[in-house]
């Protein structure tokens, strides 16, 4: 079995798995990073979203072979201590109910904030539009992203 090397949360990892294995299962089953969630396996729900070179991707749709040499950020690596403006805003707005979909939501939001410092409600709803939350946390996500943007503008990092 070929070994594939990728960088996850700043650490180079060599993975020996079938090159067709989706990154989602590499992260969860091989690397023990269970913060990336399995919700549908087909790219419909967004729970498995991670950042690839800073851009959001559905890790269930990325075969290991394609991940070779790339840099990924998972929810465990978004900050050392939960201090990313999105993470803090999520707590302040009491966004999470069951919380299962939230790692994907937060990473998508972090990517949006990195490219749009002050997104409108429509831009947030559109960027996160393909993420599903069965608990209905959507209104609070919109508030949290706006709050994170204000915080970042006031001096925090994006």
């Amino acid at each position: 079995m070929a070994e594939v090397t990728l960088t996850v949360n700043g650490v180079r990892r060599a993975v020996g798995a079938d090159p067709g294995t989706p990154l989602l299962w590499v992260l969860r089953d091989e690397l023990g990073l269970t913060g990336t969630k399995y919700g549908c396996g087909e790219g419909y729900c967004g729970s498995c979203t991670v950042l690839e070179e800073g851009a959001p991707v559905r890790s269930c749709q990325v075969p290991l072979a394609q991940a070779a040499g790339k840099r990924y950020t998972t929810i465990e690596g978004l900050s050392n201590d939960g201090s990313h403006p999105a993470q803090r805003a999520w707590l302040e707005q009491n966004v999470s109910q069951c919380g299962f979909c939230q790692p994907g939501m937060i990473l998508e939001a972090a990517a949006l904030l990195a490219r749009r410092a002050n997104p409108t409600e429509e831009e947030i709803a559109s960027a996160l539009g393909d993420h599903l939350c069965r608990c209905g946390s959507y209104p609070r996500i919109l508030s949290a992203v706006r709050l994170a943007a204000r915080r970042a503008a006031a001096g925090g990092r994006p």
């Binding site: 969860r28 023990g32 990073l33 269970t34 913060g35 990336t36 969630k37 399995y38 998972t74 929810i75 465990e76 978004l78 900050s79 201590d81 939960g82 993470q87 999520w90 707590l91 302040e92 009491n94 999470s96 919380g99 299962f100 939230q102 790692p103 937060i106």
Partner: peptide, 23 residues
């Protein structure tokens, strides 16, 4: 009074353990 959810910090950092996360 309003408080923040006790499970919130574990959820937003990916430390929260659900059924699928048992290793």
């Amino acid at each position: 009074r309003r408080v923040q959810r006790l499970d919130g910090p574990a959820i937003v950092t990916g430390r929260a353990r659900y059924g699928l996360d048992v290793r």
